[in-house]
Design a protein around this nucleic acid. Structure first.
Length: 951
RNA sequence: AGGACUAUAGCUCAGUUGGUUAGAGCGCUACCUUGACAUGGUAGAGGUCGGCAGUUCGAAUCUGCCUAGUCCUACCA
């Protein structure tokens, strides 16, 4: 073994071994345990959030595999419709200046497939580096032909069940990407806007209660006024009762529109009069439906003013009656330019009453980044309300659990108020909607035109054309848990592994994906008894991985960290190139460069996968965001090195020696019995922690045990035995065996979090430990043996530690070199102290670096000494020639002062009659015990202080 | 506006049903190349647990209010 831990030397080869041997595939034996990966974008790359979730998932699945379960971690990627199409469009523009329309649909999607072939391996390569034990042989992609069939089947079933419908609706339209998007893909942003007060003249001599021959409407979007089809006032509003039923003349276009009464108008708000533009505002759309107002669309798909508005009735049918005239100077004007022009014209006509500053939230497309336009279009919708109902019940009755629990609230509040889901997208990359139209526009839903003719009894020569649109990517992702297992085909795989056990994902996609997967699964998948099947039993929600200052990682901020760079390391130059190259906003580059140079002056050193995984696990307290801390990663890399070197020590002392593999007498030292006892407790704790999804506690428990107990104490305690020429073979055999076997168990305990290091070490010591097997992955997870818990040994070791630490404390405080061997005396010891001393003299001499230990009987004269207490027993280090009088006085004063504080605190408690009367007996007794101990110690130190001061 | 979460050492985080001398890593101070490890060892320093009230014999922990931050939902004429 190398002197230092070299992760690069072991990681890739072990992964290859595991994969080549097919260890990741379900074993086919034992109780099933399954998980599906949240499918990443096929052409994307893994970020820290993935590394985090994958670490959690892999830890869980490795743990369950070692528990003997038949484990499946289903892997795959999704096609990320909008994102991928955008990337390829941009790439095409850069390379040839062409648009997708230049190529045509088929040639363009071929380009996307090419891009997928080119870059699609990224993600899977990264997952291999992270050590993920996924079932590669059954990797799935949402655009695979089989998956395609699942999607078609799902769509058709939902349609046939009346849960999908098509209609002309107001939807969120992205004018840049030219597609509808769902309400979840809209991000609201706070902006400072304006509120324009516009005067609309009344006609036919009508006047308000105030006698005005006009009304004033306030609007944030003047450019939509070409599409106004009514003014509403509140039916109770005394100011406007006289004009209800009358009309105004819409300025600029000269169309007469009615004034109607509707509770939508709030008397307290604005002017009390609201202009209604049903084709361009969601609220107005509702009013329009309620009051049967016509709708006029005045914008193109580019969000420019149309040359002629499009008229519709409130039911979506075409309205040819209404005057849709738009003045020619506005034709094809961009929406915000049109806004300015319209305001200017109102002003010039004296119809602009005032302008107010107005804070408001504006919807932006999360992909394209432009302001979303409510647009009247034909779209497909899923009846989310109906689909949501059983999922709510599943969470209510505990079939599905959220970890942590509070995410239930979020889930309920969204699901109980869910809107129908717009599932069609005007894109080319995705699952083409399996719907066909005849010349009249009548729709037939089937996988192919041929099947549609059969299904709907149509004549063979009826011409049918397929819908141009594709389905929302999340529609297919919603089928993920079961379509990856072959649904709708029934198979062993589906039957064995669905529902899955645990879903690990971020709360940011709880509605996009988690909720929709629940809806789809419960509607489409049924048990044998026809009970809706949930997709997973537990949903473990992770927080976000943020940068060191708590900011979200993003390309524009230039604070993104690539998990692989932490594994392999990266130079500053390469990191700068990564962060500033190929930017959407090059103006940010200088700032990012400066920041990166400051934070990573020497780049990032290599830490290895195990250290990265351990760090992520250690930070994984449930549901909480993580602020990434490079120092912590460094600390855990050191931990790996510590384990590595502990293993080296074990190997050096055990290799070629008799470790009891083949029998022989065994005599266990106190230390041996102690570490084995401790190990049992650790096994219990770590197992519980993992079962409770507290990987942070599991990591902490392992860290503490391995570093502080096993390395810090046990390895040191093994030396006096192994290096003692007088020790018997049985004693040496006992310690060697303990050394090796405990290490072997530790490796198995730690393996789910740190797979590589543990495999490497396990392989090199397995024979010494008397175990066999091809891989640690396939070994069983350690299980505590309660009969090995030895409380007497634990107490003895505590005593031993107390004495050793006492001596070390005097050494440290007094500046005595560790090389100087000390002679100490033990005073005021009990019979059990004497027994312990006798039994452990060897350990003490070695670990406290002593020359001699003298036991003082009552009445024996003690030299002037620095004193430490272990219980009532005094550990004395003679001062003569070693210890400065003033230094010892200062040390004693410090101890006395410390105890003083404690004594005062407890006295206060015990003097409180109510405490003594009300607190449980045990608690009071404990306090009494403590104070007696502290007081005795204090007294001892005071005496000592007086004695020394008197010298 | 409603809701959720967070606030503990200089930094990143633990703290299970109220009773601990409030913990860990990193950083800091002093000493130490002792035959696994300087990616190390030993000994230390450092916290009135965001603030104010309350419940209780007892609060980092439970309740209320306040402050700051993060997020979600809604509204915006």
């Amino acid at each position: 073994m190398d002197k230092t831990y070299q992760p690069a030397a072991i990681e890739t080869s072990w992964y290859k071994t595991w994969e080549d041997n097919n260890y990741f595939a379900p074993s086919g034996e034992g109780e099933a345990y399954s998980m599906v990966i949240p499918p990443p974008n096929v052409t994307g790359s893994l970020h820290m959030g993935h590394a985090f979730q994958h670490t959690i998932m892999d830890t869980l699945v490795r743990y369950q595999r070692m528990q003997g379960k038949n484990t499946l971690w289903q892997v795959g990627t999704d096609h990320a419709g909008i994102a991928t199409q955008m990337i390829v469009e941009r790439k095409l523009a850069n390379e040839s200046g062409q648009t997708r329309h230049d190529l045509g649909r088929e040639a363009f999607t071929d380009k996307i497939w090419e891009w997928k072939e080119e870059s699609g391996g990224n993600i899977t390569r990264q997952m291999r580096r992270l050590g993920n034990s996924v079932d590669w042989q059954n990797e799935r992609f949402t655009m695979d032909p089989e998956f395609q069939q699942s999607v078609e089947q799902a769509f058709i079933s939902l349609y046939d069940d009346g849960l999908i419908y098509r209609g002309k609706r107001l939807v969120n339209w992205d004018p840049k990407l030219h597609t509808a998007i769902s309400d979840l893909e809209v991000e609201s942003k706070e902006v400072k806007g304006k509120l324009w007060y516009l005067r609309y003249p009344l006609v036919d001599g009508a006047t308000t209660a105030a006698g005005d021959d006009y009304i004033v409407v306030a609007t944030t979007r003047p450019e939509t006024m070409f599409g106004d089809t009514a003014i509403v006032v509140n039916p109770e509003d005394p100011r406007f009762q006289s004009i209800v039923g009358k009309e105004v003349l819409l300025p600029l276009v000269g169309r007469r529109i009615p004034i109607i009464a509707d509770e939508h108008a709030d008397m307290e708000k604005g002017t009390g009069c609201v202009k209604i533009t049903p084709a361009h505002d969601f609220n107005d759309y509702e009013v329009g439906k309620r009051c049967q107002l016509p709708m006029i669309n005045v914008l193109t798909f580019n969000a420019e003013i149309r040359e002629q508005g499009q008229g519709f009735n409130s039911d979506g049918t075409v309205n040819t009656e209404i005057n849709c005239h738009i003045p020619s100077q506005y034709h094809n004007m961009e929406r915000f330019a049109a806004r300015r022009a319209i305001v200017a014209e109102f002003e010039s006509m004296g119809l602009l009453v005032k302008v107010e500053e107005n804070n408001m939230t504006i919807p932006y497309g999360d992909r394209g980044g432009v302001v979303i336009e409510p647009m009247l279009t034909d779209q497909w919708f899923a009846d989310a309300k109906t689909l949501a109902k059983p999922t709510i019940e599943a969470v209510e009755n505990g079939d599905i659990n959220f970890v942590p629990k509070q995410y239930e609230n979020m889930f309920f509040s969204w699901m109980r108020d869910i809107q129908d889901w717009c599932i069609s997208r005007q894109l080319w990359w995705g699952h083409r909607i399996p719907a066909f139209y005849d010349i009249q526009g009548k729709v037939y839903v089937a996988p192919t035109a041929e099947e549609a003719r059969i299904k709907y009894n149509l004549s063979a020569d009826l011409e049918l054309t397929q819908d141009n649109d594709v389905l929302d990517t999340w529609f297919s992702s919603g089928l993920w848990s079961f379509a990856t297992m072959g649904w709708p085909k029934q198979s062993d795989r589906l039957e064995t592994f669905h529902p899955t056990d645990t879903l690990v994902t971020g709360f940011d996609i709880i509605f996009f994906w988690v909720a929709r997967m629940m809806m789809m699964s419960m509607h489409l998948c049924k048990d044998k008894d026809n009970k809706p099947q949930i997709p997973f039993k537990t949903i473990y929600m992770t927080g976000l991985v943020r940068d060191e200052s708590g900011e979200k990682m993003s390309k524009t901020k230039g604070n993104v960290l690539d998990p692989l760079d932490m594994i392999d390391g990266i130079s500053l130059e390469d990191l700068l190139e990564k962060r500033t190259g190929n930017m959407m906003q090059p103006q940010m580059a200088a700032k990012i460069r400066k920041r990166t140079e400051k934070e990573y002056a020497d780049g990032i050193p290599a830490h290895g996968t195990d250290a990265l995984r351990f760090t992520l696990a250690a930070l994984a307290s449930t549901g909480r965001d993580i602020n990434w801390d490079m120092k912590r990663l460094e600390g855990y890399r050191n931990f790996c090195n510590k384990i590595w070197n502990a293993a080296r020590y074990v190997e050096m002392n055990a290799q070629g020696e008799d470790c009891g593999q083949n029998g022989g007498d065994i005599e266990l030292s106190l230390a041996d019995r102690w570490i084995v006892s401790k190990l049992q407790q650790i096994e219990i704790d770590v197992t519980r922690n993992i079962e409770e999804y507290r990987l942070d506690l599991a990591a902490q428990t392992l860290y503490d045990f391995i570093w502080n107990e096993y390395c810090g104490w046990y390895l040191e305690l093994s030396k006096p035995v192994l290096w003692n020429e007088e020790a018997s073979d049985a004693q040496k055999r006992g310690t060697r065996q303990t050394l090796v076997r405990v290490l072997e168990v530790i490796m198995r305990l730690t393996h789910p979090i740190m797979p590589f290091l543990t495999e490497e070490i396990w392989q090199s010591i397995k024979q010494l430990a008397g175990v066999s097997g091809d891989s640690i992955m396939l070994q069983s997870y350690p299980k505590a043996d309660h009969s090995k818990i030895d409380t007497a040994a634990e107490a003895d070791i505590e005593w031993l530690k107390g004495v050793i630490t006492g001596v070390r404390n005097i050494r440290g405080e007094m500046g005595i070199s560790p090389a100087k061997e000390l002679s100490i005396l033990i005073n005021n010891g009990s019979a059990s102290d004497q027994q312990r001393l006798q039994d452990n003299r060897n350990f003490l001499m070695k670990l406290a670096s002593l020359e001699q230990i003298t036991w003082l009987n009552p009445g024996d004269e003690a030299p002037m000494s620095a004193t430490q207490l272990v219980g009532k027993m005094e550990v004395l280090v003679p001062m003569a020639g070693l210890i400065d009088k003033d230094a010892e006085l200062a040390r004693l004063s410090k101890e006395i002062e410390k105890l003083n504080k404690e004594v005062g605190r407890i006295e206060g408690k015990l003097n409180n009659q109510k405490f003594v009367a009300n607190a449980p007996e045990a608690v009071v007794a404990k306090e009494r015990d403590k104070i007696a101990q502290f007081k005795a110690a204090q007294l001892k130190f005071i005496e000592q202080h007086e004695k020394i001061a008197a010298l």
